[in-house]
């Protein structure tokens, strides 16, 4: 067994204390790291041994809870999935871009939560059925149609990567629209008309210009950019049907 490789990392962290600071400032910590660590381990080391005032969110340490999203060397990353060995000895850590900073690496995320709720991200059955009617059945192919979108962990890295969200904060954004698409694609669901009222708007999918950054940074390979383009195609077909063929019933 080889000995674990040790490294001294200069961890440059953007800090902000709303009670005393008027603007964020960088603070550098010298952290003795094992090469097998992730950036979250380095932050935990700082918190435990150097500076207990450092604030950041984390929970599962295994890319499931989606709470440790931050900018690592300018790239939206889960701190628990950003391995030290992929970086040099100087690592810059900042709160997720495009979100207001609450304190240190903690951001204000109410905007996303409100937007996610607005697209009704839950099954809306086509018709109510008594329990005696049994379960709603679904074939493997019908499941496969939307399965990748169910992998979203609401980590908001896609919002941190999306320049259109940064430029136009009203934009509904990648994760919320791809979650709407997930339910629209579900064979058991009948709520598409209700969701279209929210997502087929100027501030909805039409603010997207397919930069594609959301899909590049997604730690779960959900491909929100693909979902949004599919929503555009479907909404465009809706529009032409509605305006050029009004006799066609939906």
């Amino acid at each position: 067994m080889s000995e674990l490789q040790k490294r001294q990392i200069q961890l440059e962290v953007l800090r902000y204390n709303p009670e005393t600071d008027t603007a964020p400032r960088y603070q550098t910590y010298s952290v003795p790291c094992l090469n097998e660590w992730v950036v979250l381990d380095a932050l935990n080391y700082v918190k435990d041994h150097i500076d207990p005032t450092l604030s950041y969110r984390w929970s599962c340490h295994m890319a499931v809870c989606g709470s440790c999203g931050m900018m690592v060397n300018g790239e939206p990353k889960l701190a628990c999935k950003a391995f030290i060995h992929e970086y040099g000895d100087q690592i810059k850590v900042e709160p997720m871009a495009n979100f207001p900073i609450e304190r240190d690496l903690v951001t204000t995320v109410e905007d996303f939560i409100t937007k996610l709720a607005s697209v009704k991200p839950y099954l809306i059955p086509k018709s109510d059925q008594p329990i005696s009617a049994g379960e709603f059945k679904q074939t493997p192919a019908e499941l496969k149609k939307f399965k990748q979108y169910t992998l979203c962990i609401n980590c908001m890295l896609c919002y941190a990567a999306c320049p259109q969200y940064g430029l136009v904060p009203e934009f509904l954004g990648p994760a919320a629209i791809s979650m709407a698409h997930r339910y629209n694609q579900d064979s058991r669901d009948g709520g598409r008309d209700q969701r279209q009222e929210v997502i087929a708007t100027d501030e909805g999918v039409w603010e997207c210009s397919f930069v594609g950054a959301c899909s590049e940074v997604c730690p779960k390979h959900v491909d929100p950019a693909g979902a949004l383009q599919q929503v555009k195609v479907a909404s465009t077909i809706d529009w032409y049907k509605e305006h050029l063929m009004p006799w066609v019933k939906k």
Binding site: P18, P24, P100, P163, L167, V211
Partner: peptide, 29 residues
């Protein structure tokens, strides 16, 4: 505890210079 979130504004005219993927996007556009 008071809350005073700090908002970092994105430059409306030079934002795409900040990342290579944004430059590739603008080249496409």
């Amino acid at each position: 505890m008071s809350s005073k979130p700090y908002v970092r504004e994105m430059s409306k005219t030079t934002w795409f210079l900040s990342q290579p993927r944004y430059k590739r996007y603008m080249a496409r556009e």
